[in-house]
Design a protein around this nucleic acid. Structure first.
Lengths: 116, 116
DNA sequence: GCCTATAGTGTCGAAAAGGATACCGTGATG
DNA sequence: CATCACGGTATCCTTTTCGACACTATAGGC
């Protein structure tokens, strides 16, 4: 599972913010969720969208997303192995969050532009 | 500055998501931003809201938020030192993001409840 | 017989993030 | 004179995270 940001809930109301962050933290989770919002993808399809992620990292991130209940992993017992990753209901519930992140990034970070 | 999540922008459109995450990542930044959305706060006022953060961490997080242009630090040359932290325009622009995070946390994580 | 693709796993090590603890100067207060 | 509050620093150490790289099984194609 991802880093546990706080065990103590001593951040009062703002804690919910961190609680959410806890789940989408992880170097690639944001992008993975984003891509899965558009469609179900296979392992290597995700890799192709994220060229610099190593298989090990991708596995880790997907497994965490799975155990957090955001992603469903469906294995097809075929011979070139086939595994599909899709969002669960819970995963889709993150859509507003992911979209807010993307909107801000597009508007303020310019995707590549450094902070003003 | 916070961890650099990616230098390569090879995550295509989803990259904006990570770009944003990059800024609010950092164990306490989310909550700090959240609290500053309500009011300007002094160093120790923030500490009191986040009892388990050490002064060192708080300084680090605030300095990063400052250098990312989200927070303004105003020093009053008084004698019990007085320093006020407030959000900049850029900081306020994160409001929808922070609120989306909080909304999801309230709705799905129950602030304390573990994943369903 | 060798290469390809798929979906991973294993091991190792470096680097970054975070935590604990102690300490600083100043001026007012007791 | 000693203590307190303020806003931090400095130092050290542990934990977590990430990346490189090699390696696996299976079936089909050439």
């Amino acid at each position: 599972m991802a880093r546990v940001r706080h065990d103590r809930l001593d951040c009062s109301p703002g804690c919910a913010v961190e609680a959410t962050l806890q789940f989408i933290d992880g170097k690639w989770k944001g992008v993975i969720l984003y891509h899965l919002l558009s469609s179900t993808l296979r392992f290597n399809e995700i890799r192709r969208r994220l060229p610099s992620v190593t298989p090990r990292m991708l596995t880790t991130q997907l497994r965490e997303l799975e155990s957090d209940g955001f992603v469903a992993r469906k294995v097809f017992p075929e011979v070139p192995p086939k595994v599909e990753y899709s969002l669960t209901e819970r995963g889709r519930s993150l859509e507003p969050v992911v979209m807010a992140l993307k909107a801000w990034g597009d508007a303020h970070a310019g995707v590549a532009a450094k902070a003003a």
